[in-house]
Simulated scan of single mutants.
Amino acid sequence: MEQMSLSFPATRTVSGKSLAGVVGSGDMEVLFTADQGKSLTVDIITSVDNSKVRWQALFDRIALTGNLPAGHMQIHDFGATPGVARIRIEQVFEEVSHA
């Protein structure tokens, strides 16, 4: 298991909490809690060693959309593909956008 933390400038504020995925599914779980800060902090626990570059690249691509809300995100990854990871992350962002 590898643990890492990433931080990105937030481009918007939202409110609430959201959850996407189920950690026991063999996939991944993403929990997001909004705050009124100026950054998105991401704590990742993953079963895939040496994956910080992959996670950094994924969030860099998402940041290009201008869609990073301020808050704290926890990711519990058990080998999800980058496509599934992006879907789960976008699901929590969508949910808090409508809170």
Rank of each mutant, 00 (worst) to 15 (best):
G79V: 08
A70V: 11
E94H: 15
G79K: 06
S51R: 06
E95D: 12
W55G: 10
Q36T: 15
S39H: 13
A70K: 07
L40T: 08
V30Q: 02
E90P: 11
L6S: 00
T33G: 04
L31E: 09
G24N: 11
L6K: 01
K52F: 08
V48W: 01
D77L: 08
I87S: 05
S7C: 11
W55P: 07
S18A: 15
V42Y: 03
L31F: 12
K38L: 13
A34M: 08
S7N: 01
E29Q: 15
E95A: 15
I89P: 01
L64G: 05
N50Y: 14
V84H: 07
D60K: 09
A85G: 06
D35F: 03
V48N: 07
D60A: 12
Q36N: 15
Q36G: 13
V14M: 06
V14D: 00
G16Y: 00
Q74A: 12
L68K: 04
I45H: 14
S18K: 01
A70T: 10
G83Y: 07
A99R: 09
I75E: 00
F59E: 02
I87D: 12
R54H: 05
P82R: 04
H76G: 10
D60T: 12
R12K: 13
V23D: 01
E90K: 12
G21W: 02
V23M: 13
S25E: 13
D27S: 12
A63C: 08
P82T: 03
S47T: 15
S51C: 14
F8I: 08
P69E: 07
S39C: 10
E94I: 07
G16H: 00
W55S: 09
T13S: 05
D60P: 00
